[in-house]
Nucleic acid binder design. Structure first.
Lengths: 362, 362
DNA sequence: CTGAAAGCGCTTACAG
DNA sequence: CTGAAAGCGCTTACAG
């Protein structure tokens, strides 16, 4: 307390002025200011905010009134510095790309839970780039988050795997990471794909094409497995030419769909592997003047936002992204609160939403 | 240094074990561990990470090697506690709803700049709810962010206005807040709307309808103003029945579009006030069997994601959300670094993207 | 119910 | 080029 005394001799009123071309710094009030203005000790004031039941009601009232009056907000940064795992009240989120509505929905669910549980949410995009993801993970570690949620960019990620083994709290959402015990919130991709394809098969289609995602990713594999199983169970043989793997981007899907459309013996139906792929298929059909479902039936994986704006509205497998996000945040917070808890592997059931693109409804 | 000595007598190896149903806490390494393992003082180690040029290269090498070996990551939390405005290296973002692709694009732009500039991004959704927005603002203040970016839910927000007057660093994006000097990154809504409507007028339309957003919001007002000015300049009188105000949600827009479609003397063209409104208009046309642009031409405000999946692809005013976000983050960081800098009011020029829905191209 | 003291993990002058 | 000391704004035992 030798050099710094600015906050000690400062008056009650915020001294800042807001001038057109410049403003003076806004130094937030601290506990010290409250001590000065109330005559109550630091310890007790701290209790007012953290253990009010341990404080005499008159003291409580006095401190609260003053705090309210001066607009005191306790520093979460200072609080966080205290030892104690799981007390930081921040979580991190690393998603591939917030522009993808699938992730936007998940993010929304996570944020809702975080806000209502008093957690701050630090947010990053990995861009599906392992290096960038690593950079994000490190940034979150430096922030000393209580835990983080992410769909791992790669199934085998040694870096993240090691960190988890060392005790980093992680919840994997949508995608898994191999060879490590970790809490997960996943969708049952195989079942979802199975339902989608079975729906098409039952409508009489014998040539059902599939536009898949990045083949390395677990979700892509599972969806392909569901596609195959449906054929097996329904007794329809698969023409291998009808399976094309892409990267879940719209332009790629549009190109692959174009290939299908220009085959000598084209498929009569297509199962698109994710939301952007579905959109790409629509784009290709628009461009080629192909009508859905008359010329080709379509069922897509993932709900497509604003389905009704598409013509025809697509039949899809809805993963309810909001629910996935909500659950992921709940799992993470539960884990933070009890590191000893048994492993959680939550599976969200995907559901078939029948609209017009499959031809079932017409 | 009396009671706690856990980190002092801990070995080099992370002591955690990851057992199936529980894991032991992961206590991150601290400066103290590095001091113990290198024999170098705290001060010097701190310099290694912050002012390496002031450290002898042999020391530098030794410390870095050890830090790397043990996976030491400095705590941004501890660093942040140090006095000094603008050094926290965190910024906050409060947006109405990340599920809206307009905001997702902005968020993406902000996050890219934040990550590459070494800022953490704390993220919240306000849901267009003033109370929730206030809760978010308070949360960010407690986090002692260096500044925050937001499109104010209300044009007149006394709470935020007061905080800005007290020196809180804020950048308003997309929407303004009244009666206060604040940095802004806005789109020229009036000009954008003007161009959209003029485009329609020039194609010969005499009855151009408009589905607007929440009338209280500045962007809605400006777009309506552009709509009117275009009519004035082009010498076409406006039928007041052709202007309907909504709330920028798709279902509302669908309903309002339905009204237009069932008028005795329906409009021959429509100018939709935002992205979701455009989608709602498409949905209404699909439902009513109305063809765009043959039966009614359409130009929308805001780029619509996956435009090519729509039939026909819409002609829109593109605000380039990513650019808006990028610029907002840059403005905020510039302001953090120099609070005395003159006010910044950045305007992003919207551009007309002609596709098929206006009929110009057919 | 309350306060003094120690400490969280860093950075920042200050003195060498 | 380096280290000891003080401090950032809180919380947490400990002692009354």
């Amino acid at each position: 307390m030798a050099k710094k005394s600015s906050s000690t001799n400062r008056s009650n009123n915020q001294p800042s002025i807001n001038t057109p071309g410049g403003r003076s710094p806004h130094t937030p009030y601290t506990l010290k200011d409250l001590v000065r203005d109330t005559g109550v000790s630091k310890s007790t004031i701290s209790r007012v905010f953290n253990n009010p039941e341990k404080v005499k009601s008159s003291t409580l009232k006095k401190v609260r009134a003053k705090a309210e009056e001066m607009g005191y907000q306790p520093s979460r940064v200072a609080r966080r510095l205290q030892a104690g795992r799981g007390k930081a009240k921040v979580i991190g989120l690393i998603i591939p790309d917030i522009s993808n509505p699938f992730y936007a929905g998940i993010t929304r669910g996570i944020e809702d839970v975080a806000l209502s549980s008093g957690y701050a949410l630090i947010f990053n995009n990995s861009d599906e780039d392992p290096d960038r993801q690593r950079q994000c993970v490190d940034a979150l570690r430096m922030e000393r988050v209580d835990g983080m949620i992410l769909p791992p960019v790669e199934e085998k990620d040694e870096y993240i795997r090691e960190l988890i083994l060392k005790g980093l709290t992680v919840v994997c959402v949508d995608r898994v990471i191999q060879d490590v015990q970790v809490d997960t919130v996943l969708s049952d991709n195989k079942k979802g794909a199975y339902r989608a394809v079975l729906h098409l098969l039952k409508l009489g289609h014998k040539r059902v094409a599939h536009i898949g995602g990045i083949p390395e990713i677990s979700t892509s594999k599972e969806r392909l497995a569901g596609y195959k199983k449906a054929h097996r169970d329904f007794g329809v043989t698969i023409d291998p030419e009808l399976i094309l793997e892409g990267d879940s981007r719209q332009v790629t899907a549009e190109r692959l769909m174009g290939k299908f459309l220009s085959m000598k013996n084209p498929p009569t139906a297509v199962f698109t592997g994710n939301n952007l792929t579905t959109l790409g298929a629509y784009a290709a059909c628009n461009k080629h003047g192909v009508r859905i479902p008359d010329d080709i039936a379509l069922v897509g994986y993932d709900e497509v936002p604003w389905a009704d704006a598409l013509n025809p509205p697509p039949t899809v497998i809805d993963q309810s992204t909001y629910e996935i996000g909500r659950r992921a945040a709940e799992v993470l917070i539960a884990r933070i609160q009890d590191p000893e808890k048994p492993l959680i592997n939550s599976v969200v059931a995907p559901k078939l939403v029948v609209r017009k693109s499959c031809g079932a409804d017409s």
